[in-house]
């Protein structure tokens, strides 16, 4: 099958960038989307052009490195998968595809489809952790975790931090990501000591990074490769509201510099 690609090309964060048209010829339907781009890139290299830059690592849908917009949908049309797990059999001969990077002020373009997502790391650093005492290993099952909470914490922990929620959100909000991390830790007994401060700090960090607000519309949930639910955002809101008015401690990390 032959495809027409319109790909965002941008040399650096300071470059203005533009859409460039490419023809992908004899695409094998068994290829993954990234393998199709690999083949296009080999042709570009042979012609002496710059290959299209895109972020990727495991190509198994678990690392969260890859991701870009395909015809305006984060990770493309296949539900519950990252773009590395999208296969070319979903397309047909003659299809025209627009490939664009995640677009958000907090995700500056490094090159082409490759964006800098360190803003998400800084949200984690602001409060997405628990404190543990080092020393000898604790007894197994010393802390009881109800099955339903363990399941829900695992569901939230499935977030791979790919940034598709931000990309799909009309407000470029990181609420689904932040909510997933807050829910993951806040559902477990080990996450309780910092629970209130975590909500305050991570929410403040997300705003400081330049992410927008949540308008509860659900575009993020629809594209999440790990199918994280909007419920995690409500949980984050709940923790934030409680912490704002009842917490007796100062927020984590940096209220005094």
């Amino acid at each position: 099958m032959n495809l027409t690609l319109h790909v965002w090309r941008q040399n650096s964060a300071s470059d203005k960038g533009r859409m460039v048209r490419y023809e992908a010829r004899d695409v094998n339907p068994d290829m993954s989307f990234l393998e199709m781009l690999d083949v296009v890139n080999e042709e570009l290299i042979l012609k002496g052009d710059n290959p299209i830059a895109f972020d990727h690592d495991c190509r198994e849908g678990v690392c969260g490195s890859c991701g870009f917009m395909i015809n305006g949908v984060a990770h493309g049309p296949s539900h519950g998968t990252a773009v590395c797990q999208l296969h070319m059999r979903h397309y047909k001969d003659g299809d025209v595809l627009f490939l664009e990077p995640w677009r958000a002020r907090a995700f500056p373009v490094v090159k082409d489809l490759y964006v800098d997502r360190k803003a998400l790391d800084r949200i984690i650093a602001a409060g997405g952790y628990i404190s543990v005492s080092t020393g000898s290993a604790p007894d197994g099952n010393a802390i009881l975790v109800p099955k339903d909470k363990s399941d829900r914490a695992m569901d939230a922990a499935a977030c791979i931090g790919c940034g598709a929620c931000v990309a799909a959100c009309p407000n470029a909000s990181a609420a689904l990501f932040t909510g997933a991390k807050i829910s993951h830790l806040g559902l477990l007994p080990q996450g309780q000591p910092e629970r209130r401060q975590r909500a305050l700090s991570m929410v403040a960090q997300a705003a400081a990074e330049g992410f927008g607000h949540c308008t509860n519309i659900g575009e993020c949930e629809a594209v999440c490769p790990k199918e994280i639910k909007l419920e995690v955002i409500a949980r984050m809101n709940r923790d934030f509201l409680k912490a704002s008015w009842t917490s007796r401690q100062k927020p984590l990390a940096g209220s005094d510099g």
Binding site: M69, V73, F98, A104, P170, N171, G212, E219
Partner: peptide, 21 residues
């Protein structure tokens, strides 16, 4: 909030599909 939203995405998508909201 709308000002925050505008600032959060300075470069618009050439194509954006908002079919789930």
């Amino acid at each position: 909030l709308t000002q925050m939203k505008r600032a959060a995405r300075p470069v618009a998508y050439a194509k954006k599909n908002n079919s789930h909201s």
